[in-house]
Design a protein around this nucleic acid. Structure first.
Lengths: 208, 208
DNA sequence: TATTTTATCTTGTCAACGACAAGATTGGAG
DNA sequence: CTCCAATCTTGTCGTTGACAAGATAAAATA
């Protein structure tokens, strides 16, 4: 009850956060093409020009939203990996599950994060957040094949990420499993994940 | 010299085609967010309202462009598969190469085709073109593992597509191999492809 | 405490956009 | 030759992102 919404606050006080929150919701509701600064301002109860004092342009707001998305993504991956116990392969699967779960819960944001446009408004914070998620994945893959050569490791990092990312991307776009139940879809995702891990293990010298 | 551009043609004659061509170029130049109907009209040398007689809305034009993209994609996949000889596994790799080559040559269009927005302006022609590309892929995968069960086949179709699509998607967004030479990048793509095919063969019972 | 500074938010404006309406031009059907 | 229908034009509307200039209130200073 400290500085909440009494009637109509003088200066709002937390516009930046409000804009990010409203923007994130708007993004999921209307898609990237339906996303407008003015609607964000409207939802935050401020005038159309107020956001300019916190974000230089609409791309700046999108960059901030994408950056937070990466933070949430790494959090989801970490949490799900931890739940999956100590085995390296199981943790890799768990991280993949976390990755897919985040994407499924935030489809438009996920598409924004990995869109070509996102590369255009590249802020340092966005690049750092993306790199952080990448390293998380890289380490999980390398832990599965610790004895493999650096080259094989690199290729398996590529391959594992591609399989996970490709699967959930195709699902989100409606190309894969459009008429499956959520349950069946999750099974398909897990099948893709385990096929991926098997391939990694095998390529890393752990096969037979 | 039949109905080309003499001075300023009466009715243009081929506006629809001109708009699609201009739009496709504009899309690659400016990205989806920089794509405007009026700029397409400008490049086709017509007034801002002329496109309305050929496309009901901007989404209609984008849908048409995406549809042609799918046609070109299937053509690229077919051509590259044919070049790769008669072995089913080699042809699957070839199709993947064609897939990636198309995406690399038309990055923004590719992103549009597989974007969430594309699902929104879903025309019958677009859906048919997309389904056609899907079936091409499905058959190529199934040809590699003809003796596998239907369930395994389905999962390997998922998996193979996910690996190819995921890899090229990550490359296009700059997440993978951003500072590799085109040559090195192609090698990474081929490595991902062969890891995928190996996994498919093994899962399909052709292993050992 | 009183005054000044500064961040924040407002209203007002601009060019560009997508969409629509109404009128002009032209190729082809009768 | 006449009329029709498709095609293209000009004109307009509401909305958008960005900018400018002024108002408000919090914070810094004296």
């Amino acid at each position: 009850m400290a500085r909440a919404k009494a009637e109509k606050p003088y200066h709002h006080g937390e516009l930046r956060e409000a804009l990010v929150a409203a923007g994130r919701k708007l993004l999921e509701e209307k898609g990237l093409r339906g996303f407008t600064l003015r609607e964000c301002a409207r939802r935050a109860q401020v005038s159309h020009a107020a956001p300019a004092h916190h974000f230089a342009s609409i791309d700046d707001l999108l960059a901030e939203i994408a950056t937070r998305g990466y933070h949430d993504l790494t959090a989801a991956m970490t949490a799900e990996a931890r739940r999956s116990g100590g085995d390296a392969a199981a943790r890799l699967v768990g991280q993949g599950v976390g990755y897919m779960a985040f994407a499924a819960a935030n489809p438009v944001l996920f598409q924004l994060m990995f869109s070509r446009e996102a590369n255009h408004f590249e802020t340092p914070a966005l690049a750092a957040a993306a790199k952080s998620a990448y390293h998380l994945h890289r380490e999980a893959v390398e832990a599965v094949i610790p004895q493999a050569s650096g080259d094989v490791k690199e290729r398996m990092v590529d391959f594992a990420w591609a399989a996970v990312h490709g699967f959930i991307t195709l699902v989100l776009e409606g190309q894969l499993g459009e008429r499956d139940s959520p349950r069946a879809l999750k099974a398909r995702g897990l099948a893709a994940l385990s096929a991926m891990v098997e391939a990694v293990v095998r390529a890393g010298g752990g096969g037979r």
